[in-house]
Computed example of a mutant assay.
Amino acid sequence: MKNFVVHQLLYHAVITHPEQVIVSDGKQFTFRQFYSRVVKLADSLSKHGVKKGTVIGVLDVNTHRFLEMHFACSMLGAVLHTINFRLAPEQMVYSMVHTGDEWVFVSDVFAPAVKPLFPKFPNWVLMSDNREQSLPETRSAFHYEDLLEQGEEKEPAGAAQVKENDIFSIFYTTGTTGKPKGIQYKHKTLLYGTLQLFHHLALHKYGARVSSRNVYMPLIPFFHIHAWGMAFFPIYVGAKLVLPGTADPAGQMALIQKEKVSWMNMVPTQLQMLLDQKGFSNINVLTGGSPFASGIAQKAQDAGVNFSLIYGGSDQLATAISVVPEEVEPDTAEALEWRRVGMRPLPLVEVSLRDKSGNEVPHDGKSLGAVW
């Protein structure tokens, strides 16, 4: 790898798995076709003045266009602001102003809701298949597909100058007090975090085990740490990727069956809704983000859902994932409890419990402390 940066993953994937596919919005793109779209988009944006350090906000669900923006921004050295659509409207505006969005890409799903914001930001791109849809009345506005077609199929001149310590993206948390907090991710941070997370999952026999043979469908949105690394991992291993867009649980179930999805990530509430769908079984699931009730865990196990629980917060991709020790029988109540709460730090991650004075507490299964 020339540079440890996001777009190098796509270069590698096109060479090694050119005919592997990404499914999105009822369409299918091979990695080769996807790469062609990405470089055209990057070239077009370069012609319109986007350069290293330009901040680009994207407001979208998990679609191929949002994924294309990841790699186009990487090639240009632009900073991708993955806009958190779960923020309150005034907080979302705050995040866009605070991070200095110079371009805003918005899907037709969200465009009506953000119409009052059009005058606040100079450059808008509408992400839609419908090129007849009215564009924002701003200084500079484009339909995504028109913008893409203005580009040539060539790598941007500055792509080789993007470095691993450059900022790749910014994400604003919902937080619990005050205004949303912005977190900057370097290329290196995200790629190391993704490899740590999925290396950990590949090492252990039970739970949400991963391999290149899986068909992946992330329900965690791209705005949240790039769907917990799922914007990168399937590309990295050359696996099929299915993007659910706006699909509800019934629509997600239809995609699972049609595309033979075998690995997903989601919060426990989403898992509960899918467990209520007929036929949801024999799938590996990485879940987390909120408490995982024992009742849902039991229901998942009964359905043949192999789950692991992720813990970590937003400062890094993950800190720990639940693991069933080798000496524990897999189909037992003890194993189920290990999968629900038995956290093990990711490779090269150090975790300790500290008391109020910052002193490490004993590892005796009884002492309480804060996670450091």
Rank of each mutant, 00 (worst) to 15 (best):
N165C: 05
E327T: 02
M96K: 06
E102F: 05
D101L: 10
D146H: 13
V261K: 13
M75I: 00
A113W: 10
S169F: 02
F222Q: 13
L346W: 05
F307L: 08
E132D: 11
E102D: 11
E326S: 13
V5T: 13
S290C: 02
Y206P: 00
K120Y: 05
L243M: 08
F85N: 03
Y185Q: 01
P112G: 10
S128L: 04
V55S: 07
P347T: 04
G158C: 11
S140Q: 14
I83R: 04
S211W: 14
G304W: 01
Q196W: 08
T176V: 04
S107N: 08
E326A: 15
G26N: 12
V285I: 08
L243F: 12
Y94Q: 09
Q270Y: 05
E337W: 02
Q161E: 13
T177D: 01
L76A: 06
A239C: 09
Y216M: 08
Q20D: 03
K278Q: 14
Q270V: 01
I83G: 03
V361S: 09
V6C: 09
K205Q: 11
I225Q: 14
D108S: 15
W338T: 02
S212P: 06
P119L: 11
V58F: 03
D60H: 13
P156D: 05
P116Q: 11
A111C: 07
K356L: 14
F34C: 04
M217K: 09
P89E: 05
L41M: 10
S281A: 15
H17S: 12
V242C: 15
I170A: 10
V215G: 06
V21P: 01
D129H: 10
G342F: 09
S314Y: 11
P136R: 03
A239N: 12
Q33T: 02
N359M: 09
S128Y: 02
A297W: 02
A88V: 00
Q8A: 13
Q272K: 15
H81C: 07
I56M: 15
N84L: 10
G178W: 13
K186W: 01
D355V: 03
F232V: 00
H12T: 06
I256T: 03
P89R: 07
E350K: 14
A333Y: 01
E145D: 14
G313E: 09
Q252G: 11
V237K: 07
D364K: 13
M343Y: 15
V285D: 07
S367Q: 11
K179F: 06
R209A: 14
I235L: 15
W124N: 07
K27V: 01
V210L: 11
S74P: 00
K154Q: 15
G158S: 12
A300Y: 04
F71W: 07
F198Y: 15
V237Y: 08
F292W: 05
E350C: 04
L368A: 13
L80P: 03
N3P: 00
G151D: 11
F233C: 01
Q20R: 12
A231S: 15
H200L: 03
L190S: 10
K163G: 09
Q298C: 03
Y11M: 06
K181P: 01
V97I: 05
D355A: 09
K181D: 01
G342W: 13
S294Q: 10
R344C: 05
K240I: 01
L117N: 10
K2C: 04
